[in-house]
């Protein structure tokens, strides 16, 4: 396993670099577009490196709408919703993975089914419900439902838990621990990678959510970053520099988070004691 031949390594690096280029080239264009002057934007064949870098494009785009306020709202929603998502999804996933109870499989199918509901048709009734609760034009519709778990994350965590050998909790049970103690003391530490993975997904999901904020928020002071971004795209015109600049800026926080979090997701698993 550890004795890789040089040829094999060259192949692996070759493929990795090839795919990296595939994934990065369009993004490179996004970054350079946001730095170009208006005259250079639409040249063909395209200019990969702008002749002068217009960093002021970022500032102009940022102050063209109250993006600092949007950032605050996005942070509020993302942090609170992600927190709720992790806690509730972990509990529910454990419930489905580690217990046998009547109707479990039926309920789990229902849970999976809720992933498939097309939002186009539940959006209006949901709007009615939030309107009835007085939640329209507040951040609550974007935060509160997250505290009741989401099927995608529950399903993901359930698959992970089901891969953990059961001998662990049987030992703990003999020591007199109850289910909640077992969950808290044994499973949560083991679930760290998957908790962080769900955290990253959920955070990105909230951060980039466009539809929820569009439908449930009215006042600009409540807008999130994606709604701010959408304001560069009207019915009759698109401000490409603005979109590229803001997209670049709002991609940075999730990227940093991902870069920092990834080693906990994929590198530490083997050390955390789960033996496959």
């Amino acid at each position: 396993m550890k004795m890789k031949s040089r040829v094999e390594k060259t192949y692996i690096y070759g493929i990795l670099i090839f795919f990296s280029l595939l994934f990065l080239a369009p993004l490179f264009w996004m970054v350079t577009t946001s730095l170009k002057s208006p005259e250079e934007l639409y040249l063909f064949p395209p200019k990969w490196i702008p002749s002068s870098l217009h960093f002021e494009n970022f500032k102009e785009a940022w102050i063209s709408q109250p993006f600092t306020q949007f950032l605050k709202n996005s942070l509020t929603v993302t942090i609170l919703a992600t927190l709720g998502q992790i806690v509730s999804s972990a509990l529910v996933a454990y419930g489905f993975a580690r217990f046998t109870f009547k109707g479990r499989d039926f309920l789990f199918m229902v849970l999976l089914a809720t992933m498939m509901i097309p939002w186009e048709v539940t959006m209006i009734p949901l709007y009615m419900e939030f309107n009835f609760l007085g939640w329209i034009n507040t951040l609550k519709p974007l935060i509160v439902p997250a505290w009741f778990g989401a099927p995608f994350y529950i399903f993901l965590m359930r698959q992970f838990i089901m891969g953990i050998p059961k001998e662990l909790d049987e030992a703990a049970r003999i020591d007199g621990a109850n289910s909640f103690q077992i969950f808290y003391k044994i499973y949560l530490p083991l679930m760290k990678p998957i908790l962080i993975l769900v955290g990253v997904f959920s955070m990105l999901n909230c951060w980039n959510d466009y539809l929820g904020p569009l439908v449930f928020l009215n006042d600009q002071s409540k807008y999130t970053l994606t709604l701010g971004l959408a304001q560069f795209k009207g019915m009759f015109g698109v401000d490409m520099e603005g979109i590229m600049a803001i997209t670049f800026l709002i991609s940075i926080p999730p990227l940093i988070l991902f870069f920092a979090a990834q080693r906990y997701i994929v590198d530490d698993v083997s050390k955390s004691g789960v033996k496959g």
Binding site: F19, S20, L27, L255, F259, V266
Partner: peptide, 16 residues
């Protein structure tokens, strides 16, 4: 780094 590169496109929001 490779991991981040491969994941990067998933970070970009729909309009862009």
């Amino acid at each position: 780094f490779f991991r981040t590169f491969f994941y990067l496109p998933s970070v970009i929001s729909g309009v862009a």
